[in-house]
Structures are given as structure tokens and as C-alpha cells.
Simulated assay, not measured.
Amino acid sequence: MFTGIVEELGEIVGVEPSDGSVTLTVRGPLVTQDAVHGASIAVNGVCLTVVDAKDETFTADVIKETLDKSGLGALAPGSKVNLERPVRLSDRLGGHLVQGHVDGVGEIISREPGERWDVVTVSLPSDLARYVVDKGSITVDGISLTVVEAKADRFSVALIPTTLALTTLGHKKPGDPVNLEVDVVAKYVERMLGDRR
């Protein structure tokens, strides 16, 4: 479980394809400080299992299912990625509950720069629209954000200077893909209400 509060802007340093899967090597000095084989680290919002960690890098295997349902397949050496270690039970929950299970991939539609923040509009797969509401939570590339406005095929978020400086969303341009995870609480509520009918 994660919070969507990015700890570090890491970098892809290796991509090794193999039979439809990929082994990623990621540089992240902060998140590798206590990383061991089997640990979880979210990479752009996708929970990955550490295979090996050394010299401020870690490797993780990414299977075809994950490549098909996330934007990780588009990563190449030099790509910047948002990194977060799992939340500990003693930690404050600064963002919202994030599982690291991507629900779909959106695309940056537009950016409206402001003096202190940017408003970014992201396309929304139709099957996810029912879970996204104005002032609700959504995870974009692993970042916990508040929805400014939700529509049937898109939503907008306002990015503060810290988010712009310390995450991939400060660098993404229209046309770039982003991983989306909707609020898991909304999915459970829908399931419970559906079972009562």
C-alpha cells in the first residue's frame, strides 16, 4: 500500500526485454537505502517487486500484463520516473490509499501554465469515468492528486510548485501517457451497492 506522495524522482538506467516481459533497472538513491530482494517500490504508480538492489539502483521484472495495462512499456534509459516505497503502519497518510495497481492509461491533453501552478487535463478511459469526481482523489503516475473537474472522457488537476519540481508531471507534455489509479474506496462502494440490488 502506498500514499501517492512521491519520495524521489528516479531514472531508468536499463531496460532488458525477454519473452514479452522486461527487466527494468532504476536509479533511486533514496528508495534503495533499505531495499532488499522482495521489497515493493512503486514506479510511476505501478507496484513492482525488487529483484536486486545495489549501488543506488534496483531491478524489477515487469510482466506482459503490466506492460499492456500501464505506461511502463514506453520507458527507456534516461526516462524519469516517480518512486515511492510502501507506507508503514506508523506513517502518516499524506495522500490517499494507493494500491499500486494501475486501472488504465490516460494521456496528457493540455497544460495551462499559471504563475504558481499548472492545470493539466488528462484523458480518461470510459470505464473509469464513474470513479472520478470533482474534488475526489486520483493517482496519476503514482502521484496522489485532487481532481479539479471531472468529465466523461477527461479530468483536470492543478499542480503546485512542489509537484512540478519533484515529479514527472513537471516535465510531461501533451501526448505523453500517464498511469491512472482511481480511488479504491469508490470501487468497493460500487461493488457493495451493486450486491444489494
Rank of each mutant, 00 (worst) to 15 (best):
D34C: 00
V148G: 13
R196G: 00
H101I: 11
R92K: 15
A39H: 14
V13R: 09
G14E: 10
V62F: 09
C47T: 00
P29E: 05
T167A: 12
T23A: 01
V182K: 01
L164Y: 11
E84S: 04
P77E: 12
V13C: 11
D91K: 04
G114V: 08
D195V: 02
G78E: 06
D127A: 10
G194Q: 14
R154G: 01
N44V: 02
A42T: 00
H101P: 13
T163W: 09
V122P: 11
I160M: 13
V120S: 01
F155P: 02
E190A: 11
E65Q: 10
V22P: 03
R88Q: 13
L145G: 01
Y131Q: 03
V15R: 15
S123L: 03
G14V: 06
F2Q: 01
G20E: 08
H96E: 13
V46K: 06
L9K: 15
V119R: 15
T59H: 05
S144R: 07
T23Y: 00
V26D: 05
R85P: 05
S123W: 13
H171P: 03
T25G: 03
A39D: 15
P161G: 04
L128A: 01
L97K: 02
P86G: 03
D68P: 06
A53V: 09
P177A: 12
V102Q: 07
V184P: 04
V120W: 07
G142C: 04
V105R: 12
E190W: 03
V185Y: 11
V147Y: 13
E149C: 05
T25M: 03
A186C: 09
P77V: 01
E56V: 07
H171E: 15
G94F: 06
T163C: 07
E84N: 05
K173M: 09
K187N: 02
I12L: 07
K80R: 15
L180Q: 02
D55E: 14
V81F: 04
V120R: 06
V62I: 14
V13F: 06
V43I: 15
M192F: 15
T32C: 15
L169G: 04
V15Y: 00
P17M: 00
S156C: 02
L9G: 07
F58P: 05
S90E: 14
I138P: 09
G71F: 02
L89T: 14
K187G: 09
V189R: 04
R130L: 10
D127P: 00
V119D: 15
V157K: 10
T32Y: 12
T57A: 11
V148K: 08
V189W: 07
A186S: 15
E112K: 11
L145R: 02
Y188K: 02
R191W: 13
L164Q: 14
I41V: 14
A186E: 12
D61T: 13
T121K: 12
I5M: 14
S126M: 02
F58T: 08
A35C: 08
S110K: 13
V140S: 03
G136T: 08
T32F: 08
P161Q: 03
T163R: 08
E8N: 10
N82S: 09
E65L: 00
V46E: 00
T139Y: 00
T168W: 05
C47N: 07
V105M: 11
R196I: 14
V98R: 01
D52M: 03
T49L: 08
D19Q: 15
A158C: 08
T162M: 13
V43P: 02
R197M: 09
D176F: 03
